[in-house]
Amino acid sequence: MSAELVLSNARIVLEDDIVSGSVLIRDGLIADISEGATRTGEDFEGDFLIPGLVELHTDHLEQHYSPRPGVRWNTIAAIQAHDAQVASSGITTVFDCLRMGADEDGGFEHGEMRAMADAIQEAEREDRLRAEHLIHLRCEVSADNVLEHFADFEDDPYVRLVSLMDHAPGQRQFQTMDQYTLYYQKKRGLSDEAFALFVARRQADSARNSTRHRNTIAKVCAERGVTVASHDDATLDHVDEAIGNGVRLAEFPTSFEAAKASHQAGMSVLMGAPNIVRGKSHSGNIAARDLAGKGVLDVLSSDYVPLSLLHAPFVLADELETISLPKALAMVTSTPARTVGLDDRGCIAVGLRADVVRVRRASGVPVVRGVWREGRRVA
């Protein structure tokens, strides 16, 4: 006998419209969408029914695994805590970021991220997880040991996204030394002399490693069919480099010029949902809302605040006349799913996975009132 579920009296957010009606779920898939009232099923009382959110870039797991400097938490416990928070935020598919390559900013020892990935897969086998967890490898291409870390994930089917990052000073995220000084010297309490040596070492590492490591990792990803992301592109040269490396996702471009060029080249431009909620970047770069207003923002990421992924689309729809709620929600559902080749989810449409979320929102911060993953209630 097939398992059926009816969600009724809902405002159903489709890709280009909002309709009142009900959704029939059968065997984990959306079987029917009907407009109008129905007497059966769970009564949504006029709440929104939206697709499950798809999160491509979150460092949130790190905060649970290493909640204080030098502290390491039990990996399964860290994953469960992280999973509970993302699922209760309406996220049904999450790409957990794992750092590849350690530098003077710290990072993790060789083998720690492999152990974390193993724990994610163990937690899934033991049915501990509400959301579906996939892996996003954040590769610091300037680091001497990034290829050694990356090699630990050879042929791992959970790896579906790899980003190419270079956080050396004077470029990309830190185009000005004022930003870099604030972020590193003041945070670390370095003297001017010690900071000058720190900067010189980081710049030397970048000059020695970045191009070679970037090209090597991009080639491996192309051979394996793994989506590649660029990170913090600031110039047209950076965008050209990304095009050459087969990049499909432009994460956090730091200038309008780079964002526009990436969008026009067919990449999905990703910015942080906290940037939308706060109205500005935490590092002083371009505001995501400005990119949205100019039509060159495609994807949002919660980055470091899981609930922001649900909150930000409502902020955009409230504040920008050119962006409807369906269009804003596509930035956290259908567009990220398609960017990484997950064509079975991201929309409320017949035949797709029944990853759906019940949301109540009269004003302000939306409230998640129910989450279903493949038709199974998980929150």
Rank of each mutant, 00 (worst) to 15 (best):
A261D: 04
R345S: 08
T254V: 15
K260P: 03
V315W: 04
G284T: 02
L329G: 06
H282S: 07
D290F: 05
G293S: 07
S283G: 07
G295T: 10
H311L: 04
V340I: 14
S268P: 00
V332Y: 05
F252Q: 02
R289V: 15
E257R: 12
P306W: 03
A242V: 08
E319Y: 01
M271G: 06
T254P: 02
D298Q: 01
T333I: 09
I276A: 08
E321I: 07
L342F: 15
D298R: 00
D344W: 11
H263N: 14
D290T: 13
L310S: 00
N285T: 01
L297Q: 02
G346E: 11
N275Q: 03
Y304T: 01
F314W: 10
D298Y: 00
A288P: 01
E319M: 08
K327Y: 06
S262Y: 00
L320E: 13
F256W: 13
G346C: 06
Q264S: 12
V296C: 15
P253M: 13
C347P: 00
G246V: 11
V315H: 07
T335S: 12
M331L: 12
A288W: 00
D290G: 09
M267P: 12
G284C: 06
H282T: 15
G272H: 11
T335D: 03
S302V: 04
L300P: 01
A265H: 01
K294A: 14
G341K: 06
D290K: 12
C347A: 13
R345A: 08
N285M: 02
I286F: 01
R248Y: 06
F256V: 08
D290V: 10
A337H: 13
T322C: 09
S268L: 14
S262K: 03
C347S: 15
A317W: 10
V332I: 09
G341H: 00
D240W: 07
L307R: 05
N275F: 09
L270Y: 03
K327P: 00
L316F: 09
V296L: 13
G279A: 06
S255D: 07
G346P: 06
A273K: 11
S283Q: 07
D344H: 14
K260L: 13
N245G: 03
G279M: 12
K327T: 14
K294G: 11
T322I: 11
L307A: 13
L325K: 09
V239Y: 07
L310Q: 07
K280F: 09
M331K: 14
G293C: 05
S301I: 03
K294Q: 15
P306A: 01
K327R: 14
A330P: 02
F252M: 14
A317K: 08
